[in-house]
Nucleic acid binder design. Structure first.
Lengths: 248, 248
DNA sequence: CTCCATCAGGATGTGCACATTTCTTGACGT
DNA sequence: ACGTCAAGAAATGTGCACATCCTGATGGAG
């Protein structure tokens, strides 16, 4: 299985894809913003087809909304849609913590503890950017510990769509989850084997996030594309590495 | 919001997409088959870019596997991947039937009963094709009754990937679920409000499907594309109608 | 003054042609 | 005889140019 990268390679695709996602993640692109292909191609310094492909992919993944012959837009999640996503997450994550509570390796417990410790450290440093990342990764970690790749992929998609609201609507409040101590409690219940308690804590945790998000309606403001993508394109693509091609 | 269809329109895209999916659904395309773009374009009578777009979409949805600079292939699901998919389904669907058991409208109960009745009718007629469809739709129906669109979308994707194995590996056995009576029992438990029983029945049901599929390893045989797509392209696109564009 | 029709400008969608890569076939050397 | 390498052919990936459609503005009619 040769994997020779070419000159421009698919890395260019990933770069464009990652640049747009990062801009959204950083709250540069307000809901309702139209992402027009020529402007993006000019700003990012790539061909229009590259931008096209990336936009189509983002649309398919639910990050952007496309209207035929009109263009692609940054979606404004309604409260109802958000509630639905968290509802599905509740179903999945309650089952996940239940399963982990009923049986997990010592290595798993170690990773959980380490993650919670890292979150606490970030909290002490008041490093809200890092804490934002860690808070999301906690939920992915739980899925990973189940050893089911399909589950991990699915939950990751759900989670990114969940955190999109924070990124887009309330970029100021970089408090992804209501605080690391809730994660700590959940981890403790899992390690202690208390399935019911872990599930209940997770449900309360997610419910809290919903009310937290519902309290911060998205702020509509126009955005200049050139400004939004300033010092973005060069950085390495981090979040795309979980999205590899499936090889039979 | 105007919706003027053009001459060829997006319907052509959907037609190509649907044709390939239908061919897979009918077991015409064996696992490992390479879908090369020029041949498909010639067979379906459309331009190569149309085929390209459809293939990319199918790859992204998990129906096909793409290898850069090599082409797109019909995947051969391993037993492990299949088990993972059913594992996720177990988590979600157990939660679904629990929720429905704890509260549902009379209209919901009516739809459930009607569906089970239709399955029994198809069984009596020995209409295995129709039963195959209905068996899948039963699980989607449960998700729909929860009133959560996100959940419905997600489960539909999982389900199509589950049934892919039947379509590809064992097209002969058109018994999607082990029999409508299991669906009937689940529906009965839901309507009766027995959450634990409904959840347990669902878990047993899904576990049974896994063992059923694991017993039928995929049969590898080369396929002629022109033969696989005979009397396919003209038919109306049925399964694509649930995949509309998201409009903000 | 308001409303509608018409038209220019720009953006999206599509087909085409070329560059690049990979697979196959055949010959050559060991 | 087998393995290796090279050259041709075919398929994939990409950029370009044109067709089609939407949007906003301008001018005329009521």
């Amino acid at each position: 299985m040769p994997r020779k990268p070419r000159k421009g390679d698919v890395a260019a695709d990933e770069a464009v894809y990652g640049a747009i996602r990062r801009a959204m993640h950083m709250g540069r692109l307000a809901p309702g913003t139209k992402l027009q292909e020529p402007a993006l191609a000019r700003v990012l310094g790539v061909s229009r087809e590259r931008v096209r492909k990336a936009l189509h992919r983002l649309v398919h993944e639910g990050w952007l909304t496309a209207i035929p012959n009109r263009g692609t837009f940054v979606p404004s999640l309604t409260v109802e849609e958000m509630r639905e996503i968290y509802d599905v997450r509740s179903m999945l994550e309650a089952a996940i913590v239940r399963r982990l509570s009923e049986g997990h390796t010592t290595a798993a417990a170690k990773r959980l503890k380490a993650h919670v410790a890292e979150e606490k450290a970030a909290t002490r440093r008041d490093d809200r950017g890092r804490l934002f990342e860690l808070s999301g990764e906690f939920h992915v970690l739980l899925a990973e510990l189940c050893g089911n790749d399909e589950l991990t992929r699915l939950l990751r998609g759900l989670l990114t769509r969940s955190t999109m609201h924070f990124s887009l609507a309330a970029p100021r409040q970089l408090t992804n989850c209501a605080g690391p101590h809730e994660h700590g409690d959940i981890a403790e219940a899992i390690i202690g084997g208390k399935a019911d308690r872990a599930a209940k804590l997770m449900l309360v945790h997610l419910a809290g996030l919903v009310t937290l998000q519902a309290g911060h309606p998205p702020e509509q403001k126009p955005v200049d594309l050139a400004e939004a993508f300033r010092d973005i394109e060069g950085k390495p693509v981090r979040e795309a590495i979980g999205r590899r091609i499936r090889n039979a």
